[in-house]
Design a protein around this nucleic acid. Structure first.
Length: 422
RNA sequence: GGAGGGGUGGCCGAGCGGUUUAAGGCGACGGUCUUGAAAACCGUUGCAGGGUUACACCUGCCGGGAGUUCGAAUCUCCCCCCCUCCGCCA
């Protein structure tokens, strides 16, 4: 969410940001609401001041056993007017906030211009895609061959876009989860295991609501949502709090299952593990001072890269362009891992700086040491990493001619085996 | 699910219809004193919105929301959270 005063006073900056994002939103209704909201507010404050003063007077008169009936009668009218104004104030507040909640974040100046994903810019590349002397298989063929994935039964149990991992497949998933968490905690991230059902306030805090309800699974009875990413519960750990400057940056890592409707992605990645309604992910979250957040984004991104490097998986880093940027983000790097089965790089992590966009929604502030007042923190997060897609990358990149799969050295302690298959 | 008890400033804790502009304490900060420190004493002490060049000033905030009243931390209703006991349960 953007600051209402900022939007009010910088309409041209907002318009420009929206243009860069390829988004069309008319600001006129907001300006009109704000005009009414502020004039109502000023009138309301005046009347309340009067009420406070006269109430004091009434109190004094009554103490002196004098008649205050005239004043009381007079105040009845004032009181009624205050009530009316309060009512319209409430609805104007809500209208203004509802509008602001649908405005996306302003892209940072360093974000490349572009209208869609074709405008994304490769920042760097690591590792060389392996040359195969045979036709590499897809991960689902490999999975089936080794009996470690069972999509048919997953569909029976739940439906399409669910998976059932078995034997060494399930074990590999668990090994990756532990490997990633150990890696992240060794770099100073505190491990947390948060709720995966959250309330609407948390979803609003990180920006999933109100705009993206259609992408979420919702529990019917008590209004919980299943999280689409650990970003939601972890960022909301500090919702409504004021942090101390010396504690920053606050860094968390969390493993959670993630749940996404994937509405509108019919026909995309229908086979295999790439796009699931439920998948596992380890997330990195940082709360920082505003002046540090871009350096922290580089740090967070390299922390996610370290995991790919540790697994010796070739990848590249893409800077998302203005047209491809997520709603809440001011700047995002995507990590894309090489998948021989598809012959292309696929997203495996997304690392973003939200600046104060989420912090303002979720009311997460900090106090500078020795200074008065508070400021919003900057929040960042990134996958470190999507576990299912990492598993896919390992199967496809480490497959051998006979179909067996070599386990990356770094994972061997977690797997207790060096190989899947003969 | 049933019964009861609670949610007040950074923390503890009083207040239960009208100098509450929230007592008192702890903590923190500043000062006096001191060779220095401690103690003692004095003072200061939140958040948000409006407003101002900046001050001043005004308003709101006692878990959240709605209401009663000239006036609500205090009374009524709804909701959330915490604690104790019972039931159920991994």
């Amino acid at each position: 969410m953007l600051d209402s005063r900022f939007v009010r006073e910088n309409p041209e900056k907002i318009a420009q940001a929206l243009r860069r994002r390829n988004t069309e939103i008319d600001l006129a209704p907001f300006r009109e609401i704000e005009e009414r909201r502020l004039s109502t507010l000023r009138r309301l404050d005046d009347l309340r001041e009067k009420r406070n003063k006269v109430s004091e007077e009434i109190s004094r008169l009554k103490k002196q056993k004098q008649d205050a009936q005239g004043l009381i009668e007079e105040m009845k009218g004032v009181s009624d007017e205050i009530k009316e104004l309060e009512e319209s104030q409430r609805s104007l507040d809500r209208e203004a906030r509802d509008f602001l909640l649908t405005l996306p974040n302003i892209p940072n100046e360093s974000v490349p211009e572009g209208k869609d994903e074709t405008g994304n810019v490769e920042v760097r590349k690591w590792g060389e895609p392996r040359q195969f002397d045979f036709e590499p298989l897809n991960h689902w063929d490999l999975g089936e061959m080794h009996g470690i994935m069972d999509f048919e039964r997953a569909a029976k149990i739940a439906g399409a876009r669910f998976s059932l991992m078995k034997g060494m497949g399930a074990r590999l998933e668990r090994a990756l989860m532990n490997y990633m968490l150990d890696m992240n905690t060794s770099k100073g991230y505190m491990e947390v295991l948060p709720p995966i059902l959250v309330n609407p306030e948390s979803m609003t805090g990180t920006g999933q609501l109100p705009k993206f309800e259609a992408e979420l699974f919702k529990i019917a009875d008590p209004g919980f949502y299943l999280i689409p990413t650990a970003e939601v519960p972890v960022t909301n750990i500090h919702r409504g709090e004021i942090l101390e400057e010396e504690k920053l940056p606050v860094c968390y890592t969390a493993y959670t299952p993630c749940f996404r409707r994937e509405a509108g992605s019919y026909g995309k990645d229908t086979r295999g593990l790439i796009r699931q309604h439920q998948f596992n992910k380890v997330e990195l979250v940082r709360f920082t001072r505003p002046e540090d957040s871009y350096a922290e984004l580089e740090k967070l991104t390299s922390n996610a890269e370290d995991i790919l490097r540790g697994l010796e998986l070739p990848y590249r880093v893409m800077a998302l362009c203005t047209g491809d940027l997520g709603f809440s983000s001011a700047k995002t790097y995507d990590l894309e891992v090489w998948l021989p089965g598809q012959g292309k790089y696929r997203e495996i992590s997304s690392c973003s700086n939200f600046e104060d966009f989420q912090a303002r929604r979720a009311d997460i502030r900090f106090r500078r040491t020795g200074k008065k007042g508070t400021e919003f923190v900057h929040t960042l997060n990134g996958s470190g990493l999507a576990i299912g897609r990492t598993l896919v990358a390992i199967l496809e990149n480490y497959q051998q001619k006979d179909g067996s799969i070599i386990i990356p050295t770094a994972l061997m302690p977690y797997m207790g085996a060096g190989k899947i298959g003969e």
